[in-house]
Design a protein around this nucleic acid. Structure first.
Ligand SMILES: [Zn+2]
Ligand SMILES: [Zn+2]
Ligand SMILES: [Zn+2]
Ligand SMILES: [Zn+2]
Lengths: 128, 128
DNA sequence: CGCAAGGTCGTTATAACGTAACATTCTGCA
DNA sequence: TGCAGAATGTTACGTTATAACGACCTTGCG
């Protein structure tokens, strides 16, 4: 399944992962198994779940030796490209502060941000 | 439907709205209708969709005369309370900058932030 | 008026996402 | 070996969302 996500190079839904495994890799998985394996992969920071789209993506740092830090995602509204980034501390700090000001406590540093990627921005500009 | 959302005072799924309308208000709606009406309400900033939970919530500023600004939501992971806030400009600015640095262009200023609300923070603390 | 183009709304069916519940098998240990 | 608990398989179902089609109504024009 991790192979499926890495090879596809994009975010896939649980059922798309299942189809990929079945069609390309010859593994016939039931939905339950897919979700159980995803849970394991997530717990080990090999895969991230994108809450806003209910999809899953291979971590960009799978091969890195360092510990994994809470990721932020830039998600293209148009082509659905996903970029896993580490935002500057300053960003997280201001968000944390603003949250605390409202009386809440930040529970996760994962952010998912609605964007247009470079290519889609260009396309939009020229067509407009 | 707007009445249902306002009266319930929390985020509801499309089907929960439907049930509320049917049971409390005597309107028997089919799913398609619910989604069509929600689309209209969203376009008019009377209702917001929470992408991370696939639920819908009445705008906190329904009665305000001013134009609606892109909302940010603090969402309690534990009790699911939702607070619609306007984060300081500084926050949006740093996010926008960081996004641009990564080569992307911010598409929406709506943010959904994973939190614990005041009450749940307290509960957690005392029980721990 | 009579008719057609285009819009809204009702209805059915189904796709897509996710989990509860229970059976079976595996594994480690007394 | 016999047992407990964990992992895995399997079925069925719940939840969220949309496609597709048709009924109806409105509106603009000959
Ligand atoms: Zn990662
Ligand atoms: Zn793009
Ligand atoms: Zn609002
Ligand atoms: Zn709470």
């Amino acid at each position: 399944m991790l192979e499926a996500l890495v090879k596809s190079g994009k975010a896939l839904s649980a059922y798309e992962i299942r189809d990929y495994c079945c069609n390309q890799l010859g593994y016939d998985l039931l939905p339950m198994s897919v979700y159980r394996i995803l849970e394991f992969l997530e717990n080990n920071d090999l895969v991230h779940r994108l809450n806003t789209s209910s999809k899953y993506i291979a971590c960009s740092h799978i091969t890195c030796p360092h510990d994994h830090e809470p990721p932020q995602f830039l998600i293209c509204k148009s082509c659905h490209r996903v970029e896993e980034v580490s935002m500057p501390d300053r960003v997280i700090k201001t968000v944390t502060q603003a949250t605390r000001l409202a009386g809440f406590q930040l529970a996760s540093k994962q952010l998912e941000i609605d964007c247009y990627c470079t290519e889609c921005t260009l396309t939009k500009d020229t067509s407009a």
